[in-house]
Structures are given as C-alpha cells and as structure tokens.
C-alpha cells in the first residue's frame, strides 16, 4: 500500500515540483504515472523511496511513514522497495549474477540465501544462460532485466520504476512490461513513470497523470492521453 496525503515538494532552488498531491495505491496494483516533461513524475517517484523528502504532507509506503523515517531506518525501508531506472545503474566490472548478488551482499545476507535468491530471480527474468556475462556484453533490454532482477532479489512489496523503457526499442520495451506484469501477478505493487504511449494504451492499467505538480487525471484502465 502506498498513500500520499497533501504532499508538497519544493526543491532548494525554489522550484515547486509537487503541489498538494494526494493518492492511494492499494497493495498489488499496477500504476502508470504519465505527464509532460518537468511535470513532477520523477519527483513523485523519488518521494516514495526517500530519495527526496516532502516539504509538507504525509507519505506511507508498505507500512513505513516515509517523511518521519529516522536516518537509521532508511536502509531497512529500502529493502522493501525495489527501484528501477532508465539507465539500469549496473556495475560494469561485475557479471550479471554478481550485480544481482551485490544487492544481497551489502545487506549482509548469508551465502546460501544469496545463491538461492540470485538463481530464482535469474530464472524469473530469463537470464540464467547469461549469468556470467558482463553488462556491456548484453543488449539494453537484457541489462534492464538484470536491473529488475536486482530490484526483486530482496522480495520487495513495492517496485518503483522511472521510465524503465526509456532507452529501449519497442520489442524490448514490451518484454520489460511483460516482465513487470509477471512480477505484479505475484502481488508486488508496481509504480511506473513512463512516456511510452503504446505500452500504456495497449496494456490497460490505472493511469495517474501529473501536470504542473498536480494530479490532473486518475483513471482505472486509462489511456496515455497526450500527443507528445
């Protein structure tokens, strides 16, 4: 469950990115966040994993009161929220399997858990045969699947993705969306900011449109709805 109550975000430079956003996203939903460039989509997403703090308002994600979170609690919260980016953020010197294992190593998981979980997510994203390859030996779509595998390896309740298909061709974008749908089928909440009209229109989900820092539209099984 994700909930925002009258959330405002003003950056240090005085730009107001969000002005009074309230929203409720039940556990297990799949939500697209759409809107023009600079509307505040990334800000909306960053608030959910405490990359940014709200200037005002309340945010709850998976039982954590995000804006009240103590510094020492942030790492714990992050283990319950998977994050996926447009640029994958993989470590170039590590193999596919090592990149995924990294997420578990740095939270001091046991060797057995790491082995087991890495194998599970590799199967889920269909990259077992490429487990020993380096990121630069993979296509963009495959790299993004590794990044998603890494986001899933902690079994998070929520996965937020900021333009995960932004760098991908239509086929690869479609594969990523199908993968995220499969993750969603297992009960994980997915919040995905996107500019990809085809995906949004072809695969109907709840659509939250943000314009000028405000939610301008919120529809179940909505359309992309912009001409950009």
């Amino acid at each position: 469950m994700i909930e925002m109550q009258d959330v405002w975000k003003e950056y240090e430079n005085g730009v107001t990115a969000l002005s009074g956003v309230s929203v409720r996203i039940p556990q297990g939903s799949f939500v697209y966040v759409v809107g023009p460039s600079g509307a505040g989509k990334s800000t909306f997403i960053k608030l959910m994993y405490r990359q940014e703090r709200p200037t005002k308002g309340h945010i709850f994600v998976g039982g954590f009161n995000i804006e009240r979170l103590r510094e020492s609690q942030i790492p714990i919260m992050r283990r319950h929220v998977g994050v996926v980016f447009q640029d994958y953020k993989l470590l170039q010197q590590l193999t596919v399997a090592e990149n995924i294992a990294f997420a578990l190593e740095v939270i001091e998981a046991s060797r057995r858990t790491i082995q087991k979980r890495v194998q599970e997510v590799l199967e889920l994203v269909g990259l077992e045969d490429k487990r020993n390859m380096l990121p630069r030996e993979l296509s963009g779509g495959e790299q993004q699947r590794v990044a998603i595998a890494r986001a899933l390896v902690n079994k998070p309740k929520v996965v937020v993705a900021d333009e995960p298909t932004g760098n991908l061709d239509p086929d690869n974008s479609w594969a990523i969306l199908k993968l995220l749908e499969r993750v969603n089928d297992r009960g994980t909440t997915i919040v995905m900011a996107t500019h990809n009209r085809e995906l949004v229109n072809a695969c109907k989900k709840r659509v939250i449109a943000i314009e000028n820092g405000r939610i301008s539209r919120d529809e179940e099984r909505g359309d992309y709805g912009y001409e950009d």
């Binding site: 510094e71 020492s72 470590l91 890494r150």
Partner: peptide, 16 residues
C-alpha cells in the same frame, strides 16, 4: 556509483 546502488538496495551507512 557503487555507493549509490548500495544506498538504493538498503546497505546501512556503517556498511558503506
């Protein structure tokens, strides 16, 4: 970059 990823996946400050 490693530090950024560590933070995203929930490594503690002490660990980083």
């Amino acid at each position: 970059r490693e530090i950024e990823i560590m933070k995203l996946v929930g490594a503690t400050d002490g660990f980083i």
